Simulated assay, not measured.
Amino acid sequence: MDFGHSDRVLALREDLRAFMADHVLPREAELARAIDEEVAPDVAYPAAIRELRAKARDAGLWNLWLANHHDGPGLTNVEYGVLCEEMGRALYVAPAIFNCSFPDTGNAEAMLDYGTPEQVQQYARPLLEDDVRSCFALTEPEAASSDPTNIFTTATLDGDEWVLEGHKWWISGAIGASWAIVMAVTDPDAAPHQRASMVIVSTDAEGFEIVRPLPLMGHAAGYGHCELRFHGARTPKANLLGGRGEGFAVAQARLGPGRIHHCMRAIGAAERAFELMCRRAQTRETRGEPLAAKQMVQDWVAKSRIEIDTARLSVLHAAWMIDTVGKKGALQPIAQAKVQVASMLQEVVDRSIQVHGALGLSEDTPLASFWRTARALRFGDGPDEVHKVAIARRELARFA
């Protein structure tokens, strides 16, 4: 394994760091407020984010996630990991500026891998080139989402259209999205992993209802994590993504790299939280000495440094496995990294909040936002417990 960085990636990282330092980090709070206040059903991005997206594209810092296939910049997953970590330092605002935010990256990749030429042109190209967003509708309140084979939402073929009936929730990015990839049952009597398909549905279709943005630890603004209902929503028959009954396979292929992207961003957020913790410890005094002199704080700093560096190596290893043996061959390291990094981020951010005192609970630092994201990551793309079971089963199978 070689995690050394090419001259090209080092140059891109310097360009990205300079862009973040000049345009993003000084305006982070302002940009976050703009997202929360301006994003609406017909507004994908606030004006300030659109302005910076244009600058990022002109600077060649665009679609960096689109790895060594299609018409992307040709980076490996390991190389992208180095850049994605930088974006994670402003976790709520930065990825969208570089057109590297979820769920759009996963949706675009699924479209490029499984879509027809017409679907690519109509749906993927705008995601890659314009100020357009999408969402991915899988989880449901009536079904344990740790097992997506038991979903209830249906898509029934009626002539040349699919008709959707059902209920989804925690659909990230639904506010302001132009279309959704919806996982729905198309063959209820088929085998569990062949019951569902992926269907592309316009968010302005009649019968497509955004019920509400669900509050994530009290935060319900911005792009949203939404509850949706489908009341006979119709979409053309041609909007089936992949083959009929292949919904589970498409979902798994889509989620593998997505999990790694989440982990890469989380490393950047953890590094930022760590830096904030160390600076606060050096400058805040109590009982006549800085917090940095306290042995307990030193313990938190040491643990955090060890955990971040260990998690980074796990993520790079998983990315290297995807690059060398493909997504399927990398299932084990992807799952391990997903569990490890989500827990690590929560621990590091929590320590940083503790060092900041009540300031860390406010929105005056990015720590509260980081903590919400960290806690959600332990569910996102599959709960920790499901991944642990899969990890254990694969390991035990080696000794059967």
Score class of each variant (00 low, 15 high):
His5Phe: 05
Arg8Thr: 03
Leu12Pro: 02
Leu12Gln: 03
Glu14Tyr: 00
Leu16Phe: 00
Ala18Cys: 03
His23Gln: 04
Val24Leu: 05
Ala29Glu: 07
Ala32Asp: 01
Ala32Gly: 05
Ala34Thr: 03
Pro41Leu: 04
Tyr45Glu: 05
Pro46Gln: 09
Glu51Ile: 02
Arg53Asp: 07
Lys55Thr: 04
Ala56Met: 08
Ala59Phe: 00
Gly60Met: 03
Asp71Ser: 09
Gly72Ala: 02
Leu75Asn: 00
Val82Asp: 02
Leu83Gly: 02
Leu83Asp: 03
Glu85Gly: 07
Met87His: 12
Val93Gly: 04
Phe98Ala: 08
Cys100Leu: 11
Asp104Gly: 14
Thr105Phe: 07
Met111Ile: 15
Leu112Ala: 12
Gln119Tyr: 06
Gln119Gly: 09
Arg125Lys: 14
Pro126Thr: 08
Pro126Gln: 09
Pro126Met: 07
Pro126Ile: 05
Glu129Asp: 15
Asp131Gln: 11
Val132Trp: 08
Arg133Met: 07
Phe136Tyr: 15
Ala137Lys: 06
Asn150Cys: 05
Thr154Trp: 08
Thr154Tyr: 03
Thr156Gly: 12
Ala174Thr: 09
Val182Leu: 11
Val182Phe: 03
Val185Gly: 13
His193Arg: 15
Gln194Leu: 05
Val199Gln: 05
Ala205Cys: 13
Glu206Met: 06
Glu206Asp: 15
Glu206Thr: 14
Phe208Tyr: 14
Glu209Gly: 02
Arg212Tyr: 02
Gly218Tyr: 08
His219Lys: 13
His219Ala: 14
Gly224Leu: 09
Asn239Asp: 13
Leu240Met: 10
Leu241Lys: 03
Gly247Phe: 00
Phe248Pro: 00
Phe248Thr: 12
Phe248His: 13
Phe248Tyr: 12
Ala249Glu: 15
Val250Glu: 08
Ala251Val: 01
Gln252Ser: 10
Arg259Thr: 00
Ile260Phe: 04
His262Phe: 13
Phe274Tyr: 15
Arg279Val: 10
Ala281Pro: 06
Arg284Gln: 13
Glu285Thr: 11
Leu291Asn: 05
Ala293Glu: 11
Lys294Asp: 15
Lys294Pro: 00
Asp299His: 14
Trp300Ile: 00
Ile306Met: 08
Ile306Phe: 14
Ile306Thr: 09
Asp309Ile: 01
Asp309Asn: 13
Asp323Pro: 12
Thr324Gln: 07
Gly326Asp: 12
Gly326Trp: 03
Ala330Trp: 02
Lys338Ile: 00
Met344Lys: 06
Gln346Ser: 13
Glu347Pro: 00
Glu347Arg: 15
Ser352Phe: 02
Ser352Ile: 09
Ser352Tyr: 08
Gln354Asp: 14
Gln354Ser: 13
Pro366Tyr: 04
Leu367His: 15
Leu367Thr: 01
Trp371Tyr: 08
Thr373Lys: 10
Ala376Gly: 09
Glu385Asp: 12
Ala390His: 08
Arg393Thr: 08
Arg393Val: 01
Arg394Trp: 11
Glu395Thr: 06
Glu395Lys: 11
Ala400Phe: 12
